[in-house]
């Protein structure tokens, strides 16, 4: 899996919306926050009855940094058959929002369903919507700091993690005293007892023989496996002897 902290390789386009291929998915308009409400009202009056979605994109190095994207669809309320619906037209409004002026007028008065998506854009990007009746976080807890979907917000969250990542919690039933099944518990007990007595896992026979005869097993060391002597000296602790999640 690619590292989340590494910059994307070969990232080129600062403004993909200016370079897009000729895909006919919507009529695209780019406007400023000041003109937004006027344009939305005009579109609504001309038949775009549905606000499908309000989303945002963070372009990081572009000026203006963010785009708030509105998707509109024109369907009549009396379109009761497929024929009456026909092929509706779509409009996509791209509103460029600079990082030092994170304010956009709210569309709640025009379409009541803008309420939640605008809250989500505020929560995840930090863009405020003036005139919104209830602008608070929606996806993250109320006391969260930061806006997660910004590009400079790390994938795994802030450095001051609230819940640290523990080493793989090996809840061995034997260690807890409640065996999963009699047979495996007994077998595991034998293995542990043998390991404690001999200092190594029972499988490494050659290494044992080599260590006891005083010569280090060359095959073991060249393969990078710890020598039998080291293994014998290391105490066995089921709770920590596990795969650490790096």
């Amino acid at each position: 899996m690619p590292s989340s902290q590494a910059p994307p390789i070969g990232a080129t386009a600062l403004d993909p919306t200016a370079l897009r291929p000729p895909i006919d998915d919507a009529a695209i308009e780019r406007i400023t926050p000041a003109d937004l409400l006027a344009r939305l009202s005009a579109l609504k009056a001309s038949g775009y009855t549905m606000l499908l979605d309000v989303g945002a994109v963070d372009y990081l190095e572009r000026i203006p940094r963010y785009d708030v994207v509105y998707h509109l669809l024109n369907i009549a309320a009396d379109a009761a058959t497929v024929g009456a619906v026909g092929k509706p037209r779509r409009v996509r409004l791209l509103v460029g929002v600079p990082h030092d002026a994170l304010e956009v007028p709210s569309a709640v008065d025009l379409w009541p369903n803008a309420n939640w998506p605008e809250r989500e854009v505020f929560d995840l990007f930090g863009i405020r919507f003036s005139g919104h009746p209830d602008l608070r976080r929606i996806q993250m807890p109320d006391d969260w700091e930061g806006h997660p979907l910004r590009k400079d917000y790390p994938l795994r969250g802030p450095a001051t993690e609230m819940t640290p990542r523990p080493a793989f919690a090996l809840k061995s039933n034997v260690a807890a005293g409640t065996p999963a099944s009699g047979k495996t518990a007994a077998a595991l007990q034998r293995q542990i007892a043998a390991a404690r007595a001999g200092g190594i896992a029972p499988a490494a026979h050659e290494a044992v023989a080599a260590a006891q005869s005083g010569t280090t097993s060359s095959s073991a060391t060249t393969a990078g496996i710890a020598s039998a002597k080291e293994l014998a000296e290391r105490p066995i602790n089921l709770k920590t002897d596990s795969n650490e999640k790096s």
Binding site: A11, L14, D53, A56
Partner: peptide
């Protein structure tokens, strides 16, 4: 997409 091998933004409607 910004030309890269990872999506730049995936916004769900």
């Amino acid at each position: 997409s910004n030309g890269d091998n990872r999506p730049w933004r995936v916004r769900t409607r």
